[in-house]
Nucleic acid binder design. Structure first.
Lengths: 212, 212
DNA sequence: TCATTTGATGAAGGATTCTTCAGGTTTGGA
DNA sequence: TCCAAACCTGAAGAATCCTTCATCAAATGA
């Protein structure tokens, strides 16, 4: 996967005046809404523009094509999530393993729930062109972050290996996806969050024990 | 989601002669191939027919529309996977918890790996119309199956609750998806399979312990 | 053999969608 | 105030795609 495979998605023009900033914001938001109400298949640039209250031409002033629009929204969301995950991991350094995992998992769940609608809408986009490459990047970055955190755990001899961390992260993401797509009640989210912590804690503990 | 929302996807005509059976088979296979080489967005009925070596008209003789074609392929795949999972669960009844989980997880991984290409191709379809409803059905059926198996575990007092099982299953599926999409080597698959067993075993053990 | 059923063909209608561009409006500074 | 830059508009070109149907070919069985 060439690194420059993503350049075709770069924005065409950056907003300068205040009104255009509002416009771009509206277009992003409209994209989410259309994605949720019509699905990827029936998302058209005209529909997005209409929902945003602007004309199609305006949309094309900021995004060179439809895919770049979807890509930008996806990138923005994933960026938000991983930043919060990284912050949590930094704060959890040098603590016991179980605490580390708890803080990381809770940060992830909270970040996803913060804009649950966006999360759900973008699962449909992530499979498209550009999505897989982006996700691969994010996964790698997450792995590195968690790996670095685990190195500093105060109560284990050797941390779990890369594969174990990859599996934990993808398991966590998968469970979260399933949860989000079910449209859960706040009570369910609370319980599921706790279960997710337990899942990751017990696995990491077991994986670390096997590596003594 | 109304139950009859899926009737529009039903096949139009069932093959009677031998040649038409071959044709339908070829169309199914071609769908997978086009999905892998072009993606959902650029999958057209004409392209599928061409790849299958038949004309578009033939395709429409067996599938009322494009979505029904995708739906049929997805349904067939998921059906295969869950049947193997159910068989494994039945065979594992009355055994100790850890063994149960191992057999179930291994059956799942093996079923997915059996036609890894199909699995990967269909992740792109699963988000479309009909997919979510179907997946919900499958998830529920899986949950019931695993739940019944766990009831018979010989070495635990009370089995994990529904939410825990749901989370385990979606975590397992999520990790498997991530693995498949990475195009792993056989060695990686072997290791990951073992890690997945450990993940589910340690979580189920912990969840059962909390319920005493 | 031959009539009937089953299967296959692919050009073309109808509809949708992406994207552009020539021309208009608004903003901010000189 | 006034002009240049920024911004917005939306009709229309170009391309693609889904689906049908009139027509032909193959198979079945009586």
């Amino acid at each position: 996967m060439p690194a420059d495979a993503l350049v075709a998605f770069e924005p065409r023009k950056t907003p300068i005046q205040a009104r255009s900033t509002v416009t771009v914001e509206a277009i992003s938001e409209a994209t989410i809404q259309v994605l949720l109400s019509h699905g990827t298949e029936r998302l058209t640039t005209t529909r997005v523009a209409q929902r945003a209250g602007v004309s199609v031409g305006t949309l094309y002033q900021y995004y060179p094509n439809k895919q770049s629009l979807l890509f930008a929204v996806l990138e923005n969301h994933l960026s938000n999530v991983i930043v919060r995950l990284e912050t949590a991991c930094e704060n959890a350094c040098h603590k016991p393993l179980a605490e580390m995992i708890r803080e990381m998992v809770e940060a992830f769940v909270d970040a996803k729930m913060d804009r649950a609608d966006i999360s759900v809408a973008l699962y449909r986009v992530a499979a498209d062109v550009g999505g897989p490459a982006l996700i691969k990047q994010i996964q790698h970055r997450s792995r590195k972050t968690v790996e670095a955190m685990l190195e500093t755990a105060s109560d284990i001899k050797s941390p779990p290996d890369k594969l174990a961390i990859d599996i934990m992260l993808s398991a966590m993401a998968g469970a979260m996806r399933s949860l989000l797509e079910a449209g859960p009640s706040p009570a369910t989210v609370r319980k599921a969050r706790e279960q997710l912590v337990l899942l990751c804690q017990s696995y990491m503990t077991a994986a670390a024990a096997k590596r003594v």
